[in-house]
Design a protein around this nucleic acid. Structure first.
Lengths: 204, 204
DNA sequence: ACCTGAACACCGTTCAAGT
DNA sequence: ACCTGAACACCGTTCAAGT
């Protein structure tokens, strides 16, 4: 709290405005497909003006990735509190897939991953997101072990790695050859998570 | 067989030479990071010459993707013949992960996926690869059901979708926050596949 | 103080001109 | 016949000049 709270658009809301415009453009044409001119037009300002608020195109991606982390935090919330963390993880997976097929999802597209390979700031932002997801899922599985709903011999860290890779893969996937219904994929995912994580003896 | 078999470099070997040079450049700097000038330099020819053999930068990716499909076919071979298709799938997964962590792998990077979102030819090439993988894994699981090593109630198509998404995710992943050993990931993957696919009653 | 938009150094691609 | 490399239309980014 250093200065502001005026009626004129401040730095932060300007940045949000630009990020929102950019997100529209990226969704339409991808990160490299959308030009700065497009983004400027969509945001209703000139190139020079935009560069007052973001030092580069990549910096816009970083801002979007950071916003995405907040929305993930919301999505992951139930994992922390649920009475049955494994059931909550299955539920989360179902929501995730539905959101993915809706196209409602924000933007963890292949484009962004590709940019991360070249730009250290983007890479760092995505790694923060991945670390957050990893930690949250890890905590849920450990708690599941304490509660007896997760196999106590499961290698939780390695399992998380796979589960998150699966999530990433579902994000970037090309529809798939056959057109499977969301329900069938959701069902299969729940079966996979259940069988993979539950204690070896039991059926629940 | 229309014309050739001379000592001078023919069309096909020229194309291979360019594709190899491009692959080196892409590995170094990614698809967008590598300029055509870089590729020309690496291949030892001018821009005009290169464009005699490939109509665009994207066309080079398509050629690489097609070569990758052949190498996948080789990798998937055991699935078709193995006495235990589920065991063969686990083995394939282990090889896949090791190859991934070696950096030995060809190029199903985020870059290429990103390009597919914008270029229909690249997209078509990747879809051919995905369809091939999907069909092969599907056949293996169906055969596993016949042989009694795979749960007869498993939704094979949906399971394949998840397994291939997992493979894609492992390809594009950013190392992961913690540095897990390949062995632990391999072990977890085998557990996951085994528990997911085997008949519900049994242990083998 | 803040914005504009032409200018800069690049990119992928083309094509007149060379050999 | 095949190749060269300057030229073209773009891109992300900058910065003199305006208000």
């Amino acid at each position: 709290m250093a200065s502001d709270s005026k009626a004129v658009p401040d730095q932060a809301s300007r940045r949000r405005q630009i990020a929102r415009a950019a997100l529209n453009c990226f969704r339409r044409s991808g990160f490299h497909g959308a030009s700065m001119q497009d983004i400027c037009a969509e945001a209703g300002m000139s190139a020079g003006a935009l560069y007052r608020y973001f030092p580069s195109k990549a910096a816009i991606i970083v801002a979007i990735a950071e916003a995405e982390r907040e929305s993930h935090a919301l999505m992951f919330q139930p994992l922390e509190e649920a009475a049955d963390p494994l059931a909550a993880l299955q539920e989360l997976g179902a929501n995730f897939i539905r959101q993915q097929l809706d196209g409602t999802s924000e933007l963890l597209t292949a484009d962004v991953l590709a940019e991360a390979a070249r730009n250290p700031d983007v890479k760092a932002a995505l790694e923060r997101n991945a670390a957050f997801a990893h930690e949250t899922v890890t905590r849920a599985l450990l708690r599941g072990q304490d509660l007896g709903v997760v196999d106590p011999d499961l290698d939780v860290a390695a399992a998380c790695h796979l589960i998150i890779a699966l999530g990433d893969g579902l994000c970037t996937q090309l529809g798939g050859p056959a057109q499977l219904s969301a329900d069938r994929i959701v069902q299969a995912l729940q079966t996979m998570l259940q069988r993979f994580c539950r204690p070896v003896g039991g059926r629940a």
